[in-house]
Amino acid sequence: MKSIEAKVVVLGSQAVGKTSVVIRYVGGMFSKAVSPTIGASFFTYKLTLNNYRMKLQVWDTAGQERFRSMAPMYYRKANAAMLVYDITSEDSFYDIKDWVSELKKNVDTPIVMCLVGNKNDLEESREVNVKDAQEYADSIGALFHETSALKNVGVEEAFLQVAQQLVKLYESSPNSGLYSIDLDQSSSSQNPDSSGGSFQLPPDKSSTANAAGSKCAC
């Protein structure tokens, strides 16, 4: 069984629910009291997919304007980008265009993009319709999902599809910048940062959430 390590960056305007989406996926929960992210938070998620063991390094970035200039630090060398907007805010959808052009300009390795319309439980105040978003996603070659971190709709699917695309990317172009880890010799891992034994799979092979970073429900 082969193993892949991929860097996933979560981008989008403030208060669209980036952290909520990530915590829903990684921690399997939703908290009403999520406070604005400062800088960026780091989560890891491990799953098994089509004979690959995958470790996703998820960077959940801050949406506030003052952190905008620090984004390159987080999306540099990313293998996938989740572009999150709020379906009840047209502005947040337009902001995605800036992110896409910035990514295209600054990331030279192939990157899997996924457009995520969050808060789709708020149908009554919808400002961005599904058709427009799907069209836009197609035009930039991105995946598209509408999600609700609150109701747990579509989050798992979005990340799973991103993972599948990452596997495809890995198979088609070995130079895509994706780390592959040889688990049998984890002590001589190719990843310079993980010295012996720091990378461990959950004992069962199902894709259980093993959130190294998520410690607290608050």
Binding site: A33, V34, A211, G213, C218
Partner: peptide, 8 residues
């Protein structure tokens, strides 16, 4: 509160 969720 946000530092409590993950490494920042």
């Amino acid at each position: 509160e946000s530092f409590k969720a993950a490494e920042s």
